[in-house]
Write a protein that binds this DNA or RNA. Structure first.
Lengths: 199, 199
DNA sequence: GAGAATAGTATACCTTAGTATCTTAAAATG
DNA sequence: CATTTTAAGATACTAAGGTATACTATTCTC
């Protein structure tokens, strides 16, 4: 029992500890992906006890999501303004797939399906205590289109505004990889008709 | 160790055993729902060993899905022919929600998200070795609409044909309950514009 | 500064999905 | 009918998510 070193003279708390855990989680996620990622290993890496994790995140998928939101590629996607709704949508979603490709959808699939147990699809891109950035961007693109008389925003319901997120997640969950062609098809066959429907 | 009864003179095999397991699974699902449903309990109820289950179904969600497909309410939904695509779609999906309401979407949510780990959304309604009945019905409804010149089937891609399944599943995963109003909104705001898009 | 409240640490525990192993009944093959 | 093959039975095991408990270092409050 002779601990040769003064192991933990200082005990981390609050934000300090939280950051250490999130960093460890982020490292692990990059190294081995969500599927093989375990809570025990995160705890070990962060030199923290498992209950510390569960005190902050109710479940594994929640911790993983937090780590990605904190350290993952930022969703600082440029909102395009090409002069055409169609082009703007294609451009915007093309930027999004790059982020997913960094991980590979295969590695994210498990996380997404686990998250769906707790939150609805359209909220998957929403950080706690913040706006859904994807949603905001879509609305911005639609506003631009309204100025060009391509559509009437007031006629679009929340369900319709969430459609891009839903379709995108569906592809991530269903396909190995989301290509540019897939995005073009989604925009031309689904989003454009819905957004510009005369009603 | 004195087994007073000749417990298992006969050892069940093949389809016999499979049926016994599926029956036990179906009973359990009805009694306690998917979340509390365990493989060990199914095995016990069926007087079978756990490896018997895993030899046939690779995972819990797969066994549950099989049990529902076998004993659950049949998808023998009547294909409506009201003379209007919109009415047909609303009518058809209204029949579907009845089936889901029998369980309550809450009880099915976990099953659906678990299934999504193995299969894409649009295949959720497809039994092994059979056609996707939901898909077939949608196509039938669209054929009828084509005869009335409401749309041109040849212009609709597989992605578009799967859209009803995707949207329906999204609602089941996202909402507590899928109401008639929700269905009407999905049909009017999304499906009709997509199916009848001029392009 | 004394004492209470808070929140780490360490560790054991429970539950359940899923696997491995060994024995044995039943079916298939000849 | 003897032998081989297949698959069920029994049971033990592993791994991981998640919880409970006892103890103790910090911080808060008075």
């Amino acid at each position: 029992m002779s601990k040769t070193e003064a192991n933990h003279q200082k005990r981390r708390r609050g934000a300090d500890l939280e950051n250490a855990v999130l960093s460890a989680a982020w490292e692990l996620l990059q190294e081995i992906g969500y599927h093989d990622f375990t809570m025990a290993e995160v705890a070990k890496r962060a030199n923290a006890a498992k209950p510390v994790l569960y005190r902050r995140w109710p479940e594994k998928s929640s911790l993983a999501a937090s780590a990605i939101l904190k350290f993952g590629p930022k969703l600082d996607v440029k909102i395009p303004d090409t002069g055409s709704l169609r082009e703007d949508l294609v451009d915007f979603f093309s930027q999004l797939i790059k982020i997913f490709d960094m991980f590979g959808t295969e590695k994210l699939k498990g996380l997404v399906t686990d998250r769906l147990k707790s939150i609805p699809m359209e909220k998957l891109f929403t950080a706690p205590n913040s706006k859904n950035e994807l949603q905001t961007a879509v609305e911005q693109i639609l506003k631009q289109a309204e100025k060009r008389n391509e559509l009437q925003l007031s006629k679009l319901s929340p369900r319709v505004l969430h459609l891009p997120s839903v379709l995108f997640i569906n592809e991530v969950v269903s396909q190995e990889v989301v290509t540019k062609e897939v995005i073009v098809a989604i925009v031309d066959e689904i989003l454009m008709p819905v957004f510009t429907a005369k009603k």
